Simulated assay, not measured.
Amino acid sequence: MTGHHDPVALPGLAAELLAEARRQDSRRAARTVASRSSQRATVIALAEGADLGKHDAPPAATLQVLSGKARLETADQAWELGSGDLLPIPPERHGLHAVTDTVVLLTVALR
């Protein structure tokens, strides 16, 4: 994790994490790039076909696709997201599937 005022070069980090994800059995890799008392930002790389299984949503969060294509699914809805798309994560159980090699920025409100 970087210091409070250090910029994060997202393209380089995205490439690094995607290379790491391709080597992992889980097909994913992540790094928290900012964390404060009220929010956390994490870059998550998913190799093509990887899944983040269904899990509970935090009180407030957004998902921005930095590269690739992913599908966010709840019990009732699904969103196809591509590079540059930003989606407020619905406050319900959801999962994420990498349609292609994908890197996302997850920002979570902690309180």
Rank of each mutant, 00 (worst) to 15 (best):
K54V: 14
R111Y: 11
V108E: 14
W79I: 04
H97A: 12
L63S: 07
P59E: 13
A98P: 00
A30V: 02
V65R: 05
A30W: 05
T62I: 11
G53K: 07
L13R: 06
M1Q: 14
A30C: 02
E20L: 12
S67E: 15
W79P: 00
E92S: 14
T62R: 09
V43E: 05
I89Y: 09
L17N: 11
E73F: 02
G12D: 14
G68I: 05
L105Y: 06
G82N: 02
V33N: 00
H55F: 01
E80N: 09
L66P: 04
A75H: 09
P58C: 10
A75I: 04
T2N: 11
H94Y: 06
A15T: 13
H4Y: 14
S38H: 14
L18N: 07
P58F: 08
T74Y: 01
A57I: 05
D101H: 02
A50P: 04
G68T: 11
R71Y: 01
L105H: 07
E20R: 12
H55V: 05
R93T: 06
L72T: 03
R71F: 00
P90N: 04
I44F: 12
V104C: 08
G82M: 03
G82E: 10
E92T: 08
T74S: 06
A47I: 10
A50Q: 07
E20A: 15
D6F: 05
L66D: 04
D51A: 10
A19I: 10
G95H: 00
S35P: 02
L86H: 07
L87N: 11
L110V: 06
L13Y: 13
A34T: 06
R31G: 01
V104Q: 02
A98F: 01
R71S: 09
L87R: 13
T102C: 05
L66A: 05
R40Q: 15
R22W: 01
G3D: 15
T32Y: 03
A70S: 08
L66H: 12
L87Q: 11
A14F: 02
L81A: 09
L106S: 03
R111G: 14
H5S: 12
G12W: 03
L86V: 14
R31C: 00
R27A: 13
G68V: 04
A14P: 03
V99Q: 04
H4F: 13
R27F: 09
P7Q: 00
G95Y: 00
E20W: 02
G3I: 03
L46N: 11
V104Y: 00
G95A: 11
D56A: 15
K69R: 12
A34R: 14
R31T: 01
T42S: 03
G49T: 03
S35H: 13
P7C: 00
T74H: 01
D25K: 10
P90M: 06
L81P: 08
V99Y: 00
T74F: 00
A60F: 01
